[in-house]
């Protein structure tokens, strides 16, 4: 696809040679009146990055898109939350259980989104929320796993995220997860693809600038899963990673791969202190 290469190169040229009036705006996000932390001091581990404030992707969107997220009814991502509510109460699998059988109402998930990915002692691994959902489905319910970046998975993640809305992201980066976190950091700064772009090239060096007509954000994931206008559905973190890496013209890692799990942990930690916004609305 010659087209994509030229556009992306042209875009890169623009973003480095020309700085548009842009950057994050100064609006305030309140969802149904509840104020969100959308800008805050960068976590200590980002000291050497030159980024002193972490900013939600919400600030990089147009007013119309922003207002769609401010009201839970206007937010089309909330349709998926309703659908997941049905799934939550649906008995599936050989154990004849639903989510509700063990967890009662979804409000029991309050605080969960804010701390994932996190270490699972029993399994001896870093687990994303999606991995934990599938562990419940396969090991507790005897049901089939959701496809990692599928609609039902995104919907269930959205239902769980809503329970923590407004709470600051607070993923641990030390102790048993330290190695995975370092691996994620390494991936964040590794250039990939024929365009030789790393995550940092766009989302650390050039956030606030335009890549053609796209307003580059910091690539924060506190708003995931996110309803994108472009495909009119909820998108998972790994689905978005895949899209970004593909745009560098690289073979991408698979959603759910150890590489993307590590990258998710690292990227999530760059948003420590920002409110959980999922499901957010983005371009």
């Amino acid at each position: 696809m010659k087209y994509k290469a030229t556009t992306a190169l042209a875009a890169l040229a623009i973003s480095t040679s020309m700085v548009f009036a842009g950057g994050a705006d100064d609006d305030t996000l309140a969802i149904d009146g509840q104020e969100m932390i959308t800008k805050t001091a960068a976590p200590a581990h980002m000291a050497e990055t030159g980024v002193d404030t972490v900013i939600s992707g919400w600030h990089f969107r147009e007013d119309d898109t922003q207002s769609m997220q401010a009201d839970t009814f206007d937010n089309p991502g909330m349709i998926a939350v309703d659908q997941a509510m049905d799934s939550w109460n649906t008995v599936e699998g050989s154990a004849e259980k639903s989510c509700a059988s063990c967890h009662e109402g979804p409000e029991s998930m309050e605080g969960v989104r804010a701390v994932y990915p996190k270490w699972n002692e029993e399994a001896g691994e870093v687990r994303t929320l999606a991995m934990q959902i599938n562990d419940c489905r396969t090991n507790q319910m005897g049901a089939d796993a959701y496809k990692y970046d599928s609609g039902p998975m995104a919907a269930m993640e959205a239902l769980i995220a809503v329970q923590s809305r407004g709470m600051p992201v607070n993923v641990a980066i030390d102790g048993p997860v330290a190695e995975t976190w370092e691996q994620g950091k390494e991936l964040y700064y590794t250039r990939t693809g024929q365009l030789e772009l790393s995550c940092a090239n766009c989302h650390e060096d050039n956030y606030g600038n335009y890549i053609r007509a796209d307003h580059l954000s910091q690539g924060q994931i506190n708003g995931f899963p996110t309803y994108r206008l472009k495909n009119a559905k909820l998108n998972t973190v790994h689905g978005r990673f895949k899209g970004c890496v593909r745009d560098t013209r690289a073979e991408t890692y698979a959603p759910g791969s150890p590489e993307f799990v590590a990258l998710e942990l690292y990227v999530a930690s760059r948003g420590n202190g920002l409110s959980v916004e999922g499901p957010s609305v983005r371009n």
Partner: peptide, 8 residues
């Protein structure tokens, strides 16, 4: 209607 740079 704007045309973005990212197909992602």
């Amino acid at each position: 209607v704007t045309i973005g740079g990212c197909g992602g």
